Simulated assay, not measured.
Amino acid sequence: MADQDGPQRSDQPAGGSPADETQVNPDEGQGRGRMRYQDDSTTPREPTLAEKRARVAAEKRQEEQARAELAEQERKTQVRRRVMVGGGVTVGVVALVAAFYSGSAYRAEQTAVQEFCATGQGPATVQNPDLCDENYVQSHGGYSSGGMFFMPIFLPGGGFGGYNSYRYGYTQPGTTAPPVGQPVSNPSFTKPAGTNITNTKGQTVQRGGFGINSKSGSSGS
C-alpha cells in the first residue's frame, strides 16, 4: 500500500525534537519585575505600637511649639505695652515738670522786685548804690544806724555841713527802678519776703522763698 511505501508525514519540524506549542520561560512565574497594586478593597494595615507612639509624640511637640510661640507673642506685646506706657508717663512727667518750672519762672518774673538806694528824706529818688553800701559809707567817714546810711557833707570852704541820709527802697512787683536821679513811684521801704530781689547792678539780693541777703550791704529790715 502507498501509505506504507511512501514517506510518512510528520508534524514535527525537521531536525528538531518534539516541540510543544509554546516555549516556557523558566523565569516566568517567579515574580521578577512585576508590581503589585493595592486596590480600595484592601484593608489598611493597623499601625504598630511604635508608630502610634511616634505620632502622639509628634503631635505633642507641635502643640508645645504652638504654645511657646503664643507665649512669646504675648510677652512681646506686654513689653511693647509697657514701653508705650512708660514713654507716655515719662513724657507726661517731663511736660508737667516743664510746665511747673515755666509757671514758676513766670510767677517769679511777675513778683520780682528791684532794690535801689534812695534818699532818706522827701520823695524817693534813686541814688548811687554805693551810698547804701556800709563798707563804702564807713570808708568815707559815714556810718549806718537803723537801716539808714549817713554820709558827711563837706562844705566848699572845708567846713562840715552835717549828713545826708540814704536807705534801701523796693519797687512794685514786676517793675524796675528808674535811672539815678529819677523819682520812684509808690516805693516800699520794707524788704518783701518770699520773692526774688535784684539790685540796680544786676546782682541777686534775695531768692524767692529763702530770704538770703547778698553782700551788697542791704539793711533787709
Rank of each mutant, 00 (worst) to 15 (best):
130 D>H: 07
130 D>G: 02
130 D>F: 13
130 D>K: 14
130 D>W: 03
130 D>I: 02
130 D>P: 01
130 D>S: 14
131 L>D: 11
131 L>Q: 14
131 L>F: 14
131 L>H: 14
131 L>Y: 15
131 L>K: 15
131 L>I: 04
131 L>W: 12
132 C>N: 12
132 C>D: 02
132 C>W: 04
132 C>I: 05
133 D>K: 15
134 E>M: 07
134 E>R: 15
134 E>Q: 14
134 E>D: 13
134 E>L: 13
135 N>I: 04
135 N>H: 11
135 N>S: 11
136 Y>H: 13
136 Y>A: 13
136 Y>T: 09
136 Y>R: 09
136 Y>L: 04
136 Y>P: 02
137 V>Y: 10
137 V>R: 12
137 V>C: 06
138 Q>V: 11
139 S>C: 03
139 S>P: 03
140 H>C: 05
140 H>V: 14
140 H>E: 08
141 G>N: 02
141 G>H: 02
141 G>K: 01
142 G>D: 04
142 G>Q: 08
142 G>W: 11
143 Y>E: 02
143 Y>Q: 03
143 Y>V: 01
143 Y>C: 03
143 Y>A: 02
143 Y>G: 02
144 S>A: 12
144 S>V: 10
144 S>F: 04
144 S>L: 04
144 S>C: 07
144 S>P: 01
145 S>V: 06
145 S>N: 08
145 S>T: 09
146 G>R: 01
146 G>K: 02
146 G>I: 00
146 G>H: 02
146 G>W: 00
147 G>H: 03
147 G>F: 00
147 G>L: 00
147 G>E: 00
148 M>E: 06
148 M>L: 10
148 M>C: 01
148 M>F: 12
148 M>R: 05
149 F>Q: 06
149 F>I: 00
149 F>P: 03
150 F>M: 04
150 F>R: 03
150 F>H: 12
150 F>Q: 04
150 F>P: 02
150 F>L: 03
150 F>N: 04
150 F>Y: 15
151 M>P: 01
151 M>I: 13
151 M>T: 15
151 M>K: 09
151 M>N: 00
151 M>Y: 06
151 M>E: 03
152 P>S: 01
152 P>E: 04
152 P>A: 04
153 I>Q: 07
153 I>W: 00
153 I>A: 02
153 I>D: 08
153 I>Y: 00
154 F>D: 11
154 F>V: 15
154 F>S: 13
154 F>Y: 13
154 F>P: 04
154 F>R: 14
155 L>A: 08
155 L>M: 12
155 L>Y: 10
156 P>V: 13
156 P>D: 11
156 P>C: 00
156 P>I: 12
156 P>H: 09
156 P>T: 14
156 P>G: 13
157 G>D: 15
157 G>L: 01
157 G>R: 04
158 G>A: 13
158 G>W: 08
158 G>D: 11
158 G>R: 10
158 G>T: 07
159 G>I: 12
160 F>E: 08
160 F>R: 06
160 F>H: 11
160 F>M: 09
161 G>K: 06
161 G>W: 12
161 G>V: 09
161 G>T: 07
161 G>P: 07
161 G>I: 09
162 G>K: 05
162 G>W: 07
162 G>V: 10
162 G>T: 05
163 Y>S: 10
163 Y>L: 08
163 Y>E: 15
163 Y>I: 13
